[in-house]
Deep mutational scan, measured.
Amino acid sequence: MSIQHFRVALIPFFAAFCLPVFAHPETLVKVKDAEDQLGARVGYIELDLNSGKILESFRPEERFPMMSTFKVLLCGAVLSRVDAGQEQLGRRIHYSQNDLVEYSPVTEKHLTDGMTVRELCSAAITMSDNTAANLLLTTIGGPKELTAFLHNMGDHVTRLDRWEPELNEAIPNDERDTTMPAAMATTLRKLLTGELLTLASRQQLIDWMEADKVAGPLLRSALPAGWFIADKSGAGERGSRGIIAALGPDGKPSRIVVIYTTGSQATMDERNRQIAEIGASLIKHW
């Protein structure tokens, strides 16, 4: 067993022997301040990774656009098919120029040779490549099948209805392509620590998230040296922004954090800054 596999296998073990965790309302004060600064709703939840206990939450059962955070769930569904012998990570998928959609920095470079399922998941999570996500959605049967996968996990809230990039439209009061912070946090925890996926697939999923290259201005910008984070960000229309993450000190994750916002007129930089400040408060009061 590799060191990384050992780390993920012992996530519940280490967490069980940690000192009790206590909620700190100071972080919620910052979440509410972010709402004021952005002029928009902000949803927040913080779960203990081992027990699933909610440590703090704000608007945990209000719907927010998922945006690209759905790509972690998508690759979880792909990995479940791999575990069941219905898919192979090494299978190569070929596609054409007509398949390319807006923001496809990886797939646009491989029109000639195609990409493997493993490479597509890596591109979808680490670079948020939209064509990679659409190609992977095709392998599982489309958005409705991802929703069905989530329902089978016990998540009857999260739903995907459309493809990239239309799913980022974020129309107010439109339930399409949305989740709730509580539902997303619980589902992410199941994917990373539950028995739904094999140990190898859980490790692969967290490795992809740990290698995320496009979430630097968010929670990662607030992390002290030595902290662990595996995350996936999302951005959408109407001032929408979000991030889902597993993080913790001492090089291992111990909490799940989900943050979503929508309806702001603020710039992307300002949305990023507010999420980073929430992260800084979380870490300060850990």
Rank of each mutant, 00 (worst) to 15 (best):
G142V: 02
K30N: 06
P253M: 12
D231C: 05
G234A: 13
N168A: 09
V82R: 08
P25L: 14
H24K: 10
E175C: 11
W163H: 08
P249R: 11
T186R: 10
D174T: 05
A215E: 05
I206E: 07
T193Y: 10
K144C: 11
R271E: 10
Q37T: 06
R176V: 13
L191I: 09
V101R: 07
L197H: 05
G142R: 04
P181Q: 02
Q204I: 14
I45W: 03
G154M: 13
G251E: 15
H94L: 11
G226P: 09
K30W: 05
S201T: 10
I283H: 15
N134K: 03
L137R: 00
E270P: 04
R202S: 13
H285A: 09
S104G: 11
L38V: 10
L167I: 11
P224D: 08
S233R: 00
A132S: 11
G154Y: 05
R189F: 15
R92K: 14
G90R: 12
T179Y: 03
R271Y: 03
L167A: 10
L199E: 11
R63M: 10
E164S: 01
D161T: 09
A280M: 14
R63A: 10
T147S: 07
K284V: 12
P172I: 06
R41N: 10
L38R: 05
H110A: 14
R238N: 07
S264M: 13
T186F: 15
S96R: 09
K190I: 15
Q86L: 05
L205V: 10
R118H: 07
M127F: 14
L219G: 03
A245G: 12
K53V: 14
K232W: 01
R271F: 04
E46C: 06
K190C: 15
A200C: 15
R81P: 00
T267L: 09
R238Y: 15
A280H: 14
I278Q: 00
D155L: 01
D155V: 01
K252F: 15
I93H: 05
V78L: 10
R162T: 11
K190D: 15
A280V: 13
Q88C: 10
E210S: 13
P217K: 15
D269F: 11
T27K: 05
F64T: 01
A123F: 03
D113R: 09
M153H: 07
G242R: 01
E61S: 10
G263Y: 06
T187Q: 05
K213H: 05
D155C: 02
L89G: 09
N272Q: 13
D161G: 03
G76S: 08
N173P: 10
R271I: 06
I45C: 15
L55E: 06
V157T: 10
E164H: 00
E119R: 05
N50C: 10
S221H: 10
T193L: 12
N130V: 01
E210Y: 10
A215I: 01
I93K: 04
A211E: 13
T126H: 13
E277P: 02
G154D: 09
A280W: 15
G52F: 05
R91E: 14
